[in-house]
């Protein structure tokens, strides 16, 4: 089955960020296809490489980056939600005159059209959050 995944909550605050990862990983292990993981609302905070959790805790951002690399996942951070919350890639930083970017490896910033497209392409769009 083709799944689209939507992550609507930020890391550590809300279990949704963990459950989305566990679901995605389990689906891949079962041989399903993940057409895209789309990060929206505070979910965009799953995509900052500046995250530095204590060493004995899970690193949620790194975990996504590694999964993306292993399975060529398309991890998309919504540009509108990202701008509000300070998640930027190099292009966005340049465009808005910011002195740094913080997008993590394996993530890309794009528009809400990517969410709609995931809904169109997937057999099931599964959203994680309240």
């Amino acid at each position: 089955m083709k799944f689209g995944i939507v992550v609507n909550e930020g890391p550590y605050t809300h279990q949704a960020a963990d459950t989305a990862y566990q679901f995605t990983k389990a689906a891949l292990e079962k041989g399903h296809e993940i057409v895209r993981v789309f990060f929206y609302h505070d979910g965009v905070n799953n995509g900052t490489r500046l995250t530095t959790p204590p060493q004995d805790e899970r690193n949620i951002v790194k975990r996504w980056s590694e999964l993306a690399q292993q399975h060529k996942l398309d991890l998309v951070v919504c540009v509108a939600a990202a701008q509000r919350r300070g998640i930027v890639d190099r292009d966005e930083a340049k465009r808005h005159g910011k002195d740094a970017d913080n997008i993590a490896a394996g993530f890309r910033i794009s528009g809400l059209g990517q969410l709609i497209e995931a809904g169109v392409l997937a057999d099931r769009l599964v959203a994680f959050g309240d």
């Binding site: 929206y40 509108a80 528009g111 809400l112 059209g113 969410l115 709609i116 497209e117 169109v120």
Partner: peptide, 9 residues
């Protein structure tokens, strides 16, 4: 915002 952007699709 999703609804308004999504309307184009």
């Amino acid at each position: 915002e999703v609804v308004l952007i999504g309307a184009a699709f």
